[in-house]
């Protein structure tokens, strides 16, 4: 049996895969957040950042690597959900937590499903500018291809969309609060000495991205709806 089939065929190996891809996604979420802070500075700063980011050597390769991490993480966790359900075909009439349940651990599946839907929408919305159609953006009507800032501004005029984004921000924060520290445990990097610290860092990380992305979403909603806002 090759190493790869040993890993993919074992419950512990599957933990490794979810853990490694989870940490990669955490890194992506953090970088994506730090980059998006440029939106708070303004249009020019954000467009400069976007331009410089895409000009990085090996950008496409890195993008593909992160995309693979997302795909593997999603596929593996869906597989695990079904396996875990099969491991307890009859549920308890009464089941309580013995006091260690956290918001993050209790809602991993729910926040995960929301984030999957969010991810698909977010890509169609900003990355590929399909929803809403790029052609409806004022600059496009005027015959100029809209830049990414204009796509964001146009989308964030819509309160429903902003609320959906805030939902995504909250879910990613809650998901990370369990997932980040859980990845270390899965990879065997657990020590009684550092685990409490790691749990605190995990919670702070979750709170940071939840509040941070919410602030960016609300800010963009206000900017996009300001009278005379330039798109």
């Amino acid at each position: 049996m090759t190493i790869l089939s040993s890993v993919f065929g074992s419950s512990v190996g599957k933990k490794f895969i979810v853990g490694i891809t989870g940490l990669a996604i955490c890194l992506f979420v953090l970088m994506h957040f730090l980059g998006n802070l440029n939106l708070l500075i303004g249009k020019e700063a954000f467009l400069d950042y976007a331009k410089n980011l895409h000009a990085l050597p090996g950008f496409v390769a890195i993008e593909l690597l992160f995309a693979s991490a997302f795909l593997v993480h999603i596929a593996m966790t869906i597989k695990l959900i079904f396996e875990n359900k099969a491991a307890r075909p009859v549920d308890y009439a009464v089941k309580k937590s013995a006091g260690v349940k956290t918001l993050g651990s209790a809602t991993t599946m729910i926040t995960g499903i929301y984030l999957l839907l969010f991810l698909v929408f977010h890509l169609l919305n900003i990355k590929f500018a399909i929803i809403p159609s790029i052609d409806t953006i004022p600059t496009a009507i005027a015959g100029v291809t809209p830049n990414v800032y204009e796509v964001i501004s146009y989308s964030f005029k819509n309160l429903g969309l902003v609320l959906f984004y805030i939902g995504g921000a909250v879910c990613v924060g809650i998901h990370i609060s369990h997932g980040f520290q859980s990845s270390f445990q899965s990879l065997g990097l657990n020590s009684p000495k550092y685990m409490p610290l790691l749990r605190t860092i995990s919670n702070l990380f979750g709170v940071l991205v939840a509040i941070g992305y919410t602030v960016i979403s609300v800010f963009m909603f206000i900017v996009a709806n300001m009278k005379g806002a330039t798109l």
């Binding site: 599957k14 396996e83 875990n84 491991a87 937590s97 260690v100 651990s105 859980s182």
Partner: peptide
């Protein structure tokens, strides 16, 4: 046919 661990820590607690 046991399930997979997702680090809920309920096992340790009980």
């Amino acid at each position: 046919g046991f399930g997979n661990c997702s680090n809920h820590r309920e096992c340790e607690a009980v």
